[in-house]
Design a binder for these strands. Sequence first.
DNA 1: TAGATAAAATACAATAATGTTTGTTTTAAT
DNA 2: ATTAAAACAAACATTATTGTATTTTATCTA
Lengths: 217, 217
Amino acid sequence: MKQEKRETWQSRKSDTTRIAVLEAATQCYIKIGYANTTVTKIAEEAQLSRGAMMYHFDDVQAIIVASVGYLTEKRLEEYEALLVKAERQAGGRVTEESLEMTINALWKFFHSRYHIAYQELIVAARTDESIAKVMHPAQQEFDKRIAEHIRSHFPAWQGVEEVRETITELYFYALQGVSFFSLSTNKQPKIKRLFSLLVKTALNEYADATADIKEAN
Amino acid sequence: MKQEKRETWQSRKSDTTRIAVLEAATQCYIKIGYANTTVTKIAEEAQLSRGAMMYHFDDVQAIIVASVGYLTEKRLEEYEALLVKAERQAGGRVTEESLEMTINALWKFFHSRYHIAYQELIVAARTDESIAKVMHPAQQEFDKRIAEHIRSHFPAWQGVEEVRETITELYFYALQGVSFFSLSTNKQPKIKRLFSLLVKTALNEYADATADIKEAN
DNA sequence: TAGATAAAATACAATAATGTTTGTTTTAAT
DNA sequence: ATTAAAACAAACATTATTGTATTTTATCTA
């Protein structure tokens, strides 16, 4: 009994309102944090009455749960935009410059609006079953899409998938760590040194892995 | 007009109650998250009336702010216990085994009770000025103590401080990233691969740096 | 032992947050 | 033009949360 959804005036209006609410929620997570976010504040931010909001979402949980999907999507868009741009500038080769660009793009990603907001939900998910329940599959989907993206945009690593994956993980974890730590300290960590090491590590691993392949032939 | 604090019955009782409250707060951060923690829940967890609690702390903020100091201290204890133990088993050398032990100790640290609780406050500090105000100096103090600890317990890196620092940062950021990501996914990342790479990287950097020094002589 | 003080519990008041109900406006369909 | 339904707004009731004031209990000291 799947309802045919026509493109009516209402459905369009409803969609824009829903998005306005989710954007408002995002803004609340960013500005006042998940812990201080309330339906009232979200409604204010969306310039909407609470009643109107609750017409589109049953309760608070519904908004939060919808936020997970919304932010996952937005985050993916942001990631792809940033990394496609970096990749375009860098060309397809595995060089110091291209790796630096990749790292800088990742850096931007981990400091972007949507990721900051998502971080709040990640933390909330640890102790909130209903968030975790939607976040885990969403994160899996996200990982899958990222993996696809890397596969198709970094063809130089073809044949050394294992190494590529490990380097990818290292880069993600390290930058997530930097981004997170920067929340608790004022001092700028010596990012450049760290980035150089990350570049160097990738170059080494890549050289080793491709040498192994040539050797095998 | 500094009041001389004698070791009276009251002062002892007061101290144990304060600690009970801070432990209860910690437990709340861990079990229900910072966002859902209330004074009522903390009092329940501490098996204390709210009135009694508010006798020791002026308001919620006071408890949270005190938590930062308490957790910083506890976290440092935990860190030192774990890494001294690892270092003792590993001996003073820079080997694959010793680095693996160090990483495993760090892994445990980043998954420990107190660190998990502290993570909640790190996130809260981003949007709460009063928390950030005490957290930033606390974190600086923590970093300083860690640096001292590493200096005195990893003498093999003497003369290559720059590399040691960079590796330390890499290790901290990467493991913090892993710990944080594990909140949003069920899937165990391929930790072993990553750890191997971290070990390899440190060994390479160490070898390079010490070779440079010998060469210079 | 009586009075003073610290610690803890209880009771009270004010506010904030949520969810629900009811009412109003706007668009779509007949 | 009238009716139905969607979108939104406003008002209400309930509960949760905080902070404060008051009371009780326990310990110390003169």
